[in-house]
Nucleic acid binder design. Sequence first.
RNA 1: GUGGCUGUGGUGAAGUGGUUAACACGGCGGAUUGUGGCUCCGUUACCCGAGGGUUCGAAUCCCUUCAGUCACCCCA
Length: 421
Amino acid sequence: MLTTGPRGTKDILPDTSGFWQYVEKKAREVCNLFGYREIRTPIFEHTELFLRGIGETTDIVEKEMYTFSDRGGRSITLRPENTAAVVRAFLEHKLYADTPPAKLFYIGPMFRYDRPQAGRYRQFHQFGIEAIGAKGPAIDAEIIILATQFLRSLGLNELVLQLNSVGCPECRPKYRSVLQEFLRDKLSNLCKDCQSRFDRNPMRILDCKQAECTSLTQGAPQMVDCLCDECNQHFTQLKTLLTAGNIEFKLNPRLVRGLDYYTKTAFEIQYAPLGSQSAVCGGGRYDGLIAECGGQPTPGIGFAIGMERVLLALEKQNLLPDVMNQYDVFVIPLGEKAQAAAFKVLCDLRKSGYIADMDFMDRSLKAQMKLANKFSAQYAVIIGDDEVATNSAVLKNMQTGEQQQINFDELLKKLDTEVNG
RNA sequence: GUGGCUGUGGUGAAGUGGUUAACACGGCGGAUUGUGGCUCCGUUACCCGAGGGUUCGAAUCCCUUCAGUCACCCCA
């Protein structure tokens, strides 16, 4: 079918692109406030980058990537997320040579082969930031505050920040075996998914929503209770900083991020009315990722915000701005002779910076007036045979209805004083 | 990837086996001479997501397919 786009994709039409521009502008403003600068990486990368970066056993890599061979036989993947690519660019361009931490943000499309649903698309857009090079909890607090400030600047409240620590290579393996011990005798009663998670990623079992699993895992040992000193201190300090920054958070010991690279801080911001796709923002620390990608061991942290979900939330809350564009002037020629004169006036107006337009459908005067009104033009400039003969035009104030005949030479000047004075 | 629901014009929708597919909004045109916003009038779906089948006859029943949506899953 030539008249439908691929499943899970969306055209952003003129009546909604203004909303996107609005949200993107807010994102850029907040980033600017916090000292984050934009990075634009390609939308496709070597498949290898995501295998290593995201983790081979993650759902994203196992079943959600758009992977193909290009004509040169290289395996290419449409980026399913952008952290790995930003890290790759960070290393490739030696951004570590500049004053750390590198504070970067991006806005762009991501691709995941998944069953579409409201708030979940195969091509979707993320606004994300990455802070690479700083290991202390202050930067964790900063990016969480950045995310919160961004969402609040859009008018969104009723947001819930969930917070957890997933430990580090020091303490997580220990926790993992403690957890496996706890689960071992319950294994046969867990759901099928969880049974397969037992060896691969037992922490995800705590995140399972199946009733049996939830009840069986009641009282399971928690990561936060098994953190090593360093992780524990980091987590404690982060909580203190967030409290100092007046950020409310809800501890969720079961919060697990779906990407392997996360360490220590993991968080998610949810907007419940969105239903089952309620996570508007997800992020965390990835202290092992840079080394995993071949760089010097370097800590990093970031988040990604789903643009579609933010827009959905704004719509639900009636927070979308009025983005209808208003014309300053609508030029109306009457008859053949006036065409050229009117067109010249139109061009002059635009050259002078007025938002101006005219009819291209050979409409009647009445219909053109209706258009001027529909586009809420401030002024209409009417040029007919009489006006052409006297080198003049009728300038009509659409609000008051007043109109006067003015020489072409005077028109711009007159408009200027009308508009500015 | 699993299960459920839905699919009528640009939009919101009525119609659930029988001649020309309601209504509303929107779009377009018009209501005497070169003027809008209100009002009024006209017009706007050779066809009911697509393909096949049942039937004398289907938008209405069945199958397939595509798409959307809800939940799961996953996550932004």
